[in-house]
């Protein structure tokens, strides 16, 4: 059986074998200077899954995501996306960086940021046409930000900025979405809006991987979990892997047992 993956305007992009992985990482090691940050990571993400990358601060969650995208150069390791080398598959990948990674005082409007997601389509000198603008507005609509289209990005709240980043990723019309802390420092309404969009994506057969730090919402939001603390601790469906024992190993005993029990009660 094959699953047909479609871009947002309905055209079939490719069909991927059901069994093939959306993302395969092998032996990924990254170091900043002398200090290794992540060590020999293997990761397999199934198409149509929604995976949380979970681990303590400094565990290398963001670094893993950046290395997967080629934003930081790994010392070693390979990345394959939909059974292709990363370079070839980049058009099928969308990325939501950490909100704090950019200067929000940059002279640009909300709609301009979303249009950046169409960069590959527009090329160097391609004219922005009405249908491009309509697509960008549609993406803003999906995150509930249409009325802010003409706003300077610095005038938005943290949650609104995060939604703009998500809208830009939607504009990329990708099949694999990699998000770095999409829920960090956002209001409850934004969190609900973002998770709704991510679940829509999953329902449409897309694959989502997000760095996530709020353990209490993992079972509600995600189907799979990847536990990391510089090395891979475990990966699998939430109900198998998101257990007190595994979390204890991931966090090195820094979480109270009662806390762990409460968190994973629903899952186990």
């Amino acid at each position: 059986m094959t699953v047909t993956l479609a871009s947002s305007d309905g055209t079939a992009l490719a069909s991927a074998p059901d069994a093939g992985a959306a993302l395969t990482v092998r032996g990924m090691t990254v170091s900043y200077g002398e200090t290794p940050v992540i060590f020999s990571i293997d990761m397999d993400v199934l198409p149509g899954s929604m995976t949380a990358i979970v681990g303590p601060n400094g565990a290398g969650k963001s670094t893993l995501l950046k290395a997967v995208l080629g934003i930081v150069k790994p010392l070693s390791g390979t990345v394959r996306v939909f059974d292709r080398p990363l370079r070839e598959a980049l058009p099928r990948v969308a990325y939501v960086p950490q909100r704090a990674s950019v200067d929000w005082d940059f002279p640009t409007r909300v709609i301009d940021v979303v249009m950046m997601g169409l960069g590959r389509e527009l090329g160097l000198l391609g004219r922005v046409r009405a249908h491009h603008r309509a697509r960008a507005m549609d993406c803003l609509e999906r995150v509930g930000m249409t009325e802010f289209a003409a706003r300077q990005i610095g005038q938005l709240s943290g949650g609104q900025q995060q939604r703009v980043f998500l809208a830009r990723a939607l504009a990329q019309g990708a099949d694999l979405y990699l998000l770095d802390e999409p829920f960090a420092g956002v209001d409850a309404a934004t969190e609900a809006a973002i998770i709704a969009v991510l679940k829509e994506l999953r329902a449409a057969g897309k694959t989502v991987v997000a760095v996530h730090h709020d353990l209490s919402t993992v079972p509600d939001y995600f189907s799979d979990v990847f536990l990391i603390n510089r090395t891979r601790i475990a990966q699998g469906p939430v109900e198998d892997v998101f257990t007190p024992e595994m979390l204890d190993r991931t966090y090195g005993g820094r979480l109270a047992t009662a806390q762990l029990g409460g968190l994973t009660r629903d899952a186990v």
Binding site: I71, L90, Y95, S101, G119, L124, R168
Partner: peptide, 20 residues
């Protein structure tokens, strides 16, 4: 000629890299 890559990479280097 370099307007779009310049603007994107100036605003958001990580995103620009992720687009190749």
């Amino acid at each position: 000629f370099a307007w779009r890559p310049l603007a994107v990479s100036t605003f958001d280097e990580g995103f620009a890299r992720s687009m190749g």
